[in-house]
Amino acid sequence: MWFQERDGKYRYFERYIDPYTEKTRTVTVTLTSKSKQAQKQATRILADKVNKLISHKEGSKITFHELYDEYFKNWSPTVKASSLRGTVALDKRIKESINKDVLAKNIDRRLIQDLVNEMMDEGYAYSYYNGYKKRFFSILEFGVRMGYIERNEAKYVKAPKKIKTFEEVQGKRENYLELDEIQKLIKALRASWRLSHIANFVEFMAFTGVRYGEAAALTFNDVDLENGTVTISGTYDRALKIKTTPKTDFSYRTITIPDNVKEVIQNQIEELSTHRALKGDNFNKDNYVFFTVNGSAIDLDTLNVVIRRTAEKVGITKYLTSHIFRHSHIALLAQLDVPLSAAMDRVGHTDYKTTLSIYSHVTKSVKIDIVKKLNDLK
């Protein structure tokens, strides 16, 4: 290092070899003193500058934690806040599993496979430890793309699936409600005026097939009762309590609604008018179609508790979550012989396998009808 004095200030210089051109370059910093303390400060600043300039080229020396930090910095601005929250636990576990001084290039398939198997043995759901594996893949794929490592070892890792029992398979196949069960549940909810808004919400989901978040985020601006359509234009972020963009681009859609759903929405319009007359125009300021007595969106946890308790009272033994109404709607479409592609478009599915898995196990009445038609062939 050397320095030059100019106009009462001191400019410090340091040479380094540019790893891209392999030519000598110079970095500088200007300070107001040439004291020993100032020279030490200049040395430190210039060293930091040089390290930053050559660090990208010297990828083989990057630690896994450094790679993760750079990956996250590039990835996080490209995804929704809800997606970030969904990776918090997985990313935390990944970072806790790898020591801070482990080089990224030394992360191999055996290490990742052992960590995935460990999660399976601990009893985590397949979707969770498979997501863990996918996070490893994304981080290392970024490292390959940036030239820090030569190969993504996570490509060779498998998330093993446990063998399911007959009862587990059958339970998944029957993860929907029959039409009479839907009607029984809605009737029981309507029996209490305090739950009328939940009854409307459930009926809307069951006869449109929308996701909880899509129904919760629906505003009156998305509704066209004259033409009998609703437009799905967003989803409800439970943490931020706001309407955000939908799950996927394919989730944007306009669907037709039957008469009972029109009536449900009309009921909600009348409810809103009543509440605003009593509580002011600021009630339900976000203009949600479905709202609580406080004017806020329907809470998912509350919804699930209410429908489970009500189902138990009327003798429905299936385990209920809000998503069962989406599956139930797809089952109804299968019963009505709606083509698979039309059903996918209606519910906003991009992967035909998701819809087909339900179409393959249609309601009991359809199965009975199949037997009847086969008998008629004789």
Rank of each mutant, 00 (worst) to 15 (best):
D7P: 06
D18N: 13
P19E: 09
Y20Q: 12
T24P: 09
R25V: 04
S33L: 01
Q37I: 13
A42E: 01
I45L: 15
A47L: 13
K49V: 05
K52Q: 15
I54R: 05
I62E: 05
F64T: 00
W75R: 12
S76C: 06
K80Y: 02
G86V: 04
V88Y: 10
A89S: 15
D91P: 01
V102E: 08
N106R: 14
R109T: 13
R110T: 15
L111T: 12
V116T: 02
Y126P: 00
Y132S: 04
K134I: 13
M146N: 13
P160K: 09
F166C: 08
K172M: 12
E174P: 03
E174D: 14
L185V: 06
S192T: 07
N200H: 01
F201K: 03
E203T: 05
G213E: 13
L218K: 00
V230D: 00
T235P: 00
P246F: 04
K247D: 07
I255H: 03
I257C: 04
P258I: 12
V264A: 09
Q268S: 14
Y288W: 05
V289K: 01
F290M: 06
S296A: 11
V305S: 08
I307V: 11
I307W: 02
R308P: 01
V314I: 15
V314P: 03
V314E: 12
Y319P: 09
H329M: 04
L332S: 10
V338M: 08
P339S: 06
V347Y: 04
T355R: 03
S365M: 09
S365W: 01
V366N: 07
K367T: 09
D369T: 06
V371K: 05
N375R: 08
